[in-house]
Every structure is written in C-alpha cells, then in structure tokens.
Design a protein around this nucleic acid. Structure first.
Lengths: 362, 362
DNA sequence: GCAGCTTGCGATAACGTTCTCGCAATCTGC
DNA sequence: GCAGATTGCGAGAACGTTATCGCAAGCTGC
C-alpha cells in the first residue's frame, strides 16, 4: 500500500508496478496520447494500489502554471473586509481549480512590495491585491509582474491601468447622507479614516485611498443635494487607531454645536463612536446618530441596529477571482473596471428628528 | 534590463551574462561551494542587471521543501477566530520564512479531507488544521500525511496522537460561571453550539467538538462550585445558524422561570441573544445577562460591554506555526499538547443582582 | 502481397534549480 | 623546485513531471 521506499511513490513506481514505461504511465494517468484501454486501466489500478499522488510542484514546473493565485490583503479585523473577502476568494478560487497563497500587507507599501515579489517567486498564476497606498506602486506595473495578471480590489491605485473590482461607495454614502437629512439631520459629522496622519486633524491629508475618496465625494454630493451648508458639516480625519479615533469623536461631541449624526468611513471609526458615546452615557439613535460603511453581524444584532452602507464583499471576491482566472487563460484582454452597487440598510442608529426632536447634549 | 527572450530570465541567462557556467552562477547566488570573490560579485551584478529572480518552484523541487505550509480552517465570521487566527498564522509563517496556502473546510469533514489532500499534493512542508469533526479523521493520521508534520488548533480530534495548540476554555468558562454566581445569579442558561442538530434541542448530541466539550465541562464544574443545582440550569443545544439559535434563545426566555444569565458557547449564539433581547425590549445587563466565549472589538465597544471568556487567539496562531516549523526541521519530536490560558474579561453585560435585584420579565 | 497508415508504447528531452565530481591551475611546505 | 594540498570552475546528474519523437507491430487498400 505505502511506497516500499522511504519517500512518496512517483510515477516511475507506478510504471514499475504496472509493468509499463514511465511514458505510458504518464499517458494513462493524465490521459493524453495513445494508450490501450486495458493498459490504461492497469496503470490506474497500480496508481491507486501503491497510493500514488502526482507531485503538483513537478507538474507545475513542467506545464508552466502552478494552479495557485496570490492574495495580498490588509488584515484589519473590525471592517470585516479581510475575512469576508478572504473567504470568498479562497472558495471561489477552489471552485475554479486554484489554491490561494495569502499574504498580509498590514497597509505597509514596502511589505506589500515584498509580498508581491515573494508570491511571484513562488510562481503564482495571478495576483489579487488590495493596494495599500494610492501612490508608489511600481511593483503593480506589468514589468514588475513579469506578465502575470493582476486584479486589484477595494481600492484603485492612481494612474495605473489595471483591472479592478470595487464597490460604489460614492453613491452608497450619498444615499446615506440624503436619508439622514430626510430624517431631519441638519448638522453632519464625518469621521474619515486617513493614512499618514497622527491623531486627528481637520485638514484633508493627501493622498487618500481611492475607496476613502469615494466616500468623501459621496458625502459631499449627498450634503449638497440635501442643501446642507459646509458650515454645518464637521469633517475630522483620524488615524486608524482606536485611541486616535476616540479622541476625534470626543472632539466632535465637544463642539458647541455638535453634529446630530456622525458618518464614519469604516467600522473602526464606528466602534470609536459607540465607545465614546457609551462612556458619555449618550444613547445611539437618540442622543447621537451613527452611520457607517460595511455591514456586519454585530451591526445588525445590537440595539440599536446600526444603519450601514452595505458593500457586496463576497460578490467582490468572487468577481475578482473570476476576472483573474479569465485573464490567466487569456492574457490579452483589455482591462476592466468593475464597480459593484452598494446599498443603504436603514436601522435604528439614525434618530428620526422629525418625530423625536434633537435634545441638546448637556 | 528585462530578459531579451520572451519569458523570465533563468540562471543560465545570468551565467551567460556573467560569462560563467551555470554551476558557478548557482554557487555565487546561493553561496555554497567555492567561488572567487570577484566572480561572485560579477554574477550578482549580472543577476540584478537582467532582473533575475530564482524560480522557487524549481528550487523547491530540487531541495524537497517548498517553503509553504498549508492551513485548513473554518471560515466562520462572527467568532473572530478565522480572521485573528489566519492573520497571526500568516504573519508568523512569514517571519519563519514560510508562505501560507489557505483552504476553507466550512466545517465539512469531506471538504477538509479533500483540502488536506490538495495541499499535500502541492507539497506543503506541514499543515495546520482546525479539525471540523471529533471523529472520522483518517486523513489526519500520519500515513495519510505522507510524513508531513501536522499541528491541530482550537480543537483536538478524539484518539489521535497529534501536536495540538488549544485554549483552556474549560477553566475560562468555569471562572465565568463562578463570577456570575458571585453577582447573585442563581438560574443559569447555557446555549451550546452543536453540530448535527437541527434547530435546537435539550438533549446532548454526540459527538461534540472538543472545544465545546471543554466549555460544557467548565460550565458544569463552575455551577457545582457555586452550588447551583441542575434544576436551576437550562441547557439548550442549537444548530449554529441564526434562525435556529434565535429560536433557542426565545425558548429559554419563554420558560416560566427563565435564566437570569445566558452563557453562550460562541459569538454566533451571543449575537442571537442580543437580537432576541433587542426585539423583546429586554436590556442586556439589566433584564437579562450575557456571557460569551471569545472577545472582539464590538463586544468591548457596545453598550453594555459584553463579559467574555477571552482566548489568546494570536498567541495560539503563533505557537502553532512555531511548533510546526520546529517539527518540519526536526520531524522526530514527541507530540506536544499545548493549552493556553484564557481570561474572563468582566464588562457590564452581567447584572449585579446583589445591587439591582432581578426583575421578573413581563 | 506490398506500400502506406494507424496503433501502442519506450526512449528521451525538456522545465529551472541544487549539488556532487573531477580536473586544471594555483598555492603551500621543505 | 617538486610532491601534495587547495582553489576555482565546468560538466552533468538529479528532483518528478509532461510531451515529443521514433519505432515495431498490426492493420488497411488495391
């Protein structure tokens, strides 16, 4: 049953067991070329008999394709993007016959660069990357990729022609703002996750991630559509770190006329709002309203439920894989820019001020 | 700069560019054997010049080790185990010089079996597996693994000698029960995630996952230590599916004398409690208390904060990798059984009935 | 009954590495 | 200045596959 020699049986062991040559054994197992039905069956029997499993590494080297795709992703937990995207990509890859080599960039461009390199060295057939920065991405350009196809997800790097799958955060955010305005909110807070700032600031940092820019633009156009003046909008950019974002929330709530609703650009920021509000005994959906991007199980289960801009993350992962696989088999396709629709899920975290008028805090 | 020929430059291209033989080029780049300092430098220059990157697949095949470990894990989201464990394993693997091939078993034993096989075919140097079932695991036995080392995490399959890294859920749960009892709780509910049951049931199903069994034992001994009789304990086993667990929670709350505190064996179940309680306008930490296993950012941020049995998932991932790597380089080590300590983090979801007496619901 | 075709199979060359061997050239010791 | 050791390097085998090529049979057609 097991190989008589120490290590795993190879195809020559199968050939010996079936009494044929290596070439015939290979033909029988990978059915190509000409083999008689009887010998083919004999070889297959022998293969099972001795527990033969083809060495995929040798196979990959010979045929020039590893059956593996590389995923470089940012492992942040609170946004439930990492896990949902990873799972859907892993599952979709499997259904296309690929395995996934995963690497975490931790939002660091140098780590990302290295990860891409390492995965390419391991001969992945293609790459899916969540780019960590808007600029500085030579490593995502075709020459650096050695011709291997790439699909970026969640964010689009500036000025790079590349196939991307993202979500329409712009119109989702716009819709959410208009919804809040229709419930009577006239003073809006916007807590924006920003990279490269320390603590928080009122000045817009550059560059920002394309996904964040989208949300900013959506917020702006939503506010304009609702007729809410700039002076009634409080924009705070915060480092994506609990202490910093909590300080930013405190800052917002301490203003003489604080916003009645806070929009956050991701779940980290939303949790900061929950925490600070809780410490101050402010009730979400009554004393302060909250809207965030990305749905999650907890956002739906807690009281009050959190109103969210829901993104189809699973669909995004599946599409990224299917586009990548398609480019692997046919590399000369034009680049695609796929944008998936988002959806506002209204729950109870946004107070209806037309029913329950706003009470001044303190 | 790029290779003049169509495909990626190989070491023979480097040799040609440096004017040496293939053998010398390899010696210079992988520094072994004897090469003069000057030619070594010349080769390295040439390699950089033509953008040479070693093909890790060919290297792996030659040296018989792929520098890759396989991870078979259960991608459930609410428990924040998948993402925390995956990230820590991926990061730890990288720091040991390994990449991670990830596969999702979806808690299905057949999928798991296939995943293990596929990863072995891809010549991983070792495997980390979250076993999906307590029994039926021939595929985790040494013969099926072809001598490749295995570390199981989170759960221990019955009767298999294997290196494992788990957490001490037993004493964590016991401690949590004792804490609740010390706050005056005398009627305990226990909502247990169980596999293979449909809906919910009061009868204990067999087999259960070792991690669940641990929690059950911890609960039992905690209740005994606190002197709480069996008749004041309500155990409900539920399928791990929102609708089923919500029905189970409703059942518990509808009893003539419902428990004052519900312990849940995972976060899925805890979210079901939050949801049902919310629908019934019951306030957590006042009308009904809640304790769950596994900490998360939302459990800490919401109001009231959820009391949890916190498990050191990151440490678990890192240890699994370091033990696996150690077994890869030295396969003849005896198996280890590592159990990491857990910790009860008391927040506000458990009412202090000695201060605020229990109010009958309805 | 023989030219030409098909069938089945073995020999062998790749894929891109690492690494052992052997050989010429240089270096050491006395 | 010469035997023996050391140095530097090229030739070539090996890892386990796939896939091409060529050859000996057996088959067809006229």
């Amino acid at each position: 049953m097991a190989a008589t020699r120490g290590s795993a049986p190879t195809i020559v062991d199968v050939a010996a067991a079936a009494g044929v040559s290596l070439a015939t054994a290979s033909r029988a197992l990978s059915n190509y070329g000409r083999v008689s039905a009887v010998t083919a069956e004999r070889v297959r029997r022998a293969a099972i008999e001795i527990g033969y499993r083809p060495n995929e590494l040798a196979r990959a080297m010979r045929v020039g394709s590893s059956g593996t795709i590389g995923l470089v992703i940012i492992a942040d937990f609170t946004n439930a993007f990492f896990d949902r995207a990873t799972k859907s990509i892993v599952d979709a890859a499997k259904s296309h016959g690929y395995q996934v080599l995963i690497s975490n960039s931790d939002e660091d461009i140098e780590v990302e660069r290295l990860a891409v390199q390492t995965l390419l060295d391991k001969q992945v057939d293609g790459l899916i990357v969540v780019p960590s920065l808007a600029r500085a991405h030579d490593h995502l350009l075709p020459p650096a990729l050695g011709g291997k196809p790439l699909v970026v997800i969640d964010r689009i790097p500036d000025g790079v022609a590349v196939t991307s799958v993202t979500t329409d955060d712009r119109s989702g955010t716009e819709q959410a703002v208009r919804n809040a305005a229709s419930l009577g909110h006239e003073r809006l807070g916007f807590l924006v996750s920003a990279f490269g700032v320390h603590g928080h600031t009122l000045e817009r940092p550059e560059p920002m991630l394309s996904s964040v820019t989208e949300r900013v633009e959506g917020f702006t156009s939503g506010a304009r559509a609702a007729g809410i003046a700039k002076r009634n909008q409080l924009w705070v950019y915060s480092e994506d770190e609990p202490r910093a974002s909590e300080a930013a929330v405190s800052y917002m709530l301490d203003r003489p006329k604080p916003p009645t609703v806070i929009f956050t650009s991701n779940n980290d920021m939303a949790l900061a709002v929950l925490k600070v509000a809780g410490n101050r005994r402010l009730v979400i959906g009554r004393d302060i309203s909250l809207v965030t991007v990305d749905d999650s199980q907890w956002a739906a289960a807690i009281v009050p439920g959190i109103t969210v801009v829901a993104r189809p993350v699973e669909q995004l992962g599946e599409l990224a894989v299917s586009r990548l696989v398609s480019r692997i088999s046919n590399p000369d396709q034009p680049d695609e820019t796929i944008v998936l629709p988002t959806e506002v899920i209204a729950r109870e975290s946004v107070a209806n001020l037309k029913v329950l008028p706003y009470r001044e805090v303190d």
